[in-house]
Design a protein around this nucleic acid. Structure first.
Lengths: 246, 246
DNA sequence: ATCTTCCATATGTGATCACAGATGAAATTC
DNA sequence: GAATTTCATCTGTGATCACATATGGAAGAT
């Protein structure tokens, strides 16, 4: 019975729904503030509401989605929580991962990072928004994986998940090329620090990269926000909770 | 209609189940490796399986529970994941929170920390295991709250959640008083650093506190492990996944 | 014209049912 | 007697149902 049949997918429905939604968020296929309903998602995914509601709950605990007091679930909005706060946490956690990666850096890793960063730079040159986002993400996560901590990686993934919907925004903004161009230079410095096994310098470079992107985004996001409000807030009730049922 | 009726609990069943399980884990009311079944929990809580399974899923995504390949959910075990790795992450994240708290330290905060640490020390002196655990937790979280970052606090809570079941262990171990006695001294040094607004020193002290407790626990846990194995692992299947259903 | 009330529909939550796989002890085979 | 098979029971997963609340437009009142 060896080669005649292939292994099939054994994961649960809920897990597959969860992964699908996670990927969608990661890649910015949902807009910040967008409302998600169980039944419509279930219909779109071709399954029953049951696995969807469990997947949504998981994403809510991961802070990728929020639940309003009227129990509507929405993609995390840009302003409704403290952006700065998350940026500081990111610099800390991802900076730590970078320091660990620097301590473990091999010539092969540095060569790979250079290669990825070259691809990133090329995407910047041809003004390919998706290519830039992908290249940037690839560069970052190659470093984080090199930190060799499964658990740390999980935490960082959950941080990025929260920033996924922002990607949907950046994709449509003009002038991201300039910012990413500067990012490519910072990346270069990070790789150089890793080659010298200088953990502190690598960490510092990563923190700079994150903060620079964040402050660029803040400036341009505010402009975009003024021009075109994204998701209208629901009626007036923002405080009222609901009944409990038995 | 003012004073004649009182506000009632409006949260969902699922939320209350989640909080109840979370507290139980936090306080070490479940042993590491213990198996949880939906139906029996539902019966114990006096509700239907539905809210319980969603609460369990949330705790699984928070890494407080694990799901074996045969879909049995268990309280996180002591050895089945890298203890060291989590300790390093804790020193980093909680160290950062401590540094932030030091920057924001007020005389009132330092006085309160001294008071809490005195209570902790007294619990050590009268060899009150629960009092020690509680006092220690109280001291740590007073600092973390002083960091004034809601999101950071969430992350730290999820880290501690993972260590909750270990408390159930420590509660029964002899000689924890000696370790906690040393911890009280380290706490004192942390408060002194915060009084001087010396963020680096406070951070360093916190890292020392965490690492010292962890290495003490490792030594004594291994002894306890030999004496009395806690949770028998299920039969032989540790690899086999299951079917997917439609 | 503006605000309120009403109502059909949509939505989340919890209960119950159905079913495949897991479990562990009893029965059977060698 | 030891290893294997069988079978009743337990458990997680997904589907469906029931119901209270939310929503948003239409009808009505001011």
């Amino acid at each position: 019975m060896d080669g005649r049949v292939r292994q099939i997918d054994l994961t649960t429905m809920q897990e597959r729904v969860y992964q699908e939604l996670r990927n969608a968020l990661y890649q910015g296929r949902f807009m910040p503030g967008e409302v998600l309903t169980i039944r419509s998602l279930a219909a779109a995914l071709g399954t029953s509401p049951m696995p969807v509601r469990e997947a949504i709950q998981r994403l809510v605990t991961e802070n990728a989605l929020t639940q309003l007091p009227n129990r509507t679930t929405r993609v995390v909005s840009l302003t409704d929580e403290n952006h700065d706060e998350w940026i500081r946490i990111r610099t800390e956690v991802e900076g730590y991962a970078t320091a660990r990666a620097a301590q473990r850096a091999t010539p092969e890793l540095c060569a790979e990072l250079r290669r990825i960063n070259d691809g990133f730079r090329k995407a910047v040159e041809r003004d390919d928004a998706s290519g830039m986002l992908e290249g940037n993400q690839h560069f970052h996560f190659t470093i984080y994986r090199a930190a060799e901590s499964e658990e740390l990686l999980k935490i960082i993934e959950s941080l990025w998940l929260r920033f996924g919907p922002i990607l949907a925004f950046i994709r449509e903004l003009k002038g991201s090329g300039e910012m990413f161009g500067r990012a490519a230079e910072v990346h270069e410095r990070i790789v150089a620090a890793m080659e010298r096994r200088n953990a502190a310098a690598a960490r510092h470079g990563m923190a700079l990269d994150i903060r620079a992107a964040a402050s660029w985004f803040r400036r341009h996001h505010l402009n975009a926000q003024r021009a075109e409000p994204v998701a209208p807030r629901p009626r007036g009730i923002e405080e009222l909770p609901r009944r409990s049922r038995g």
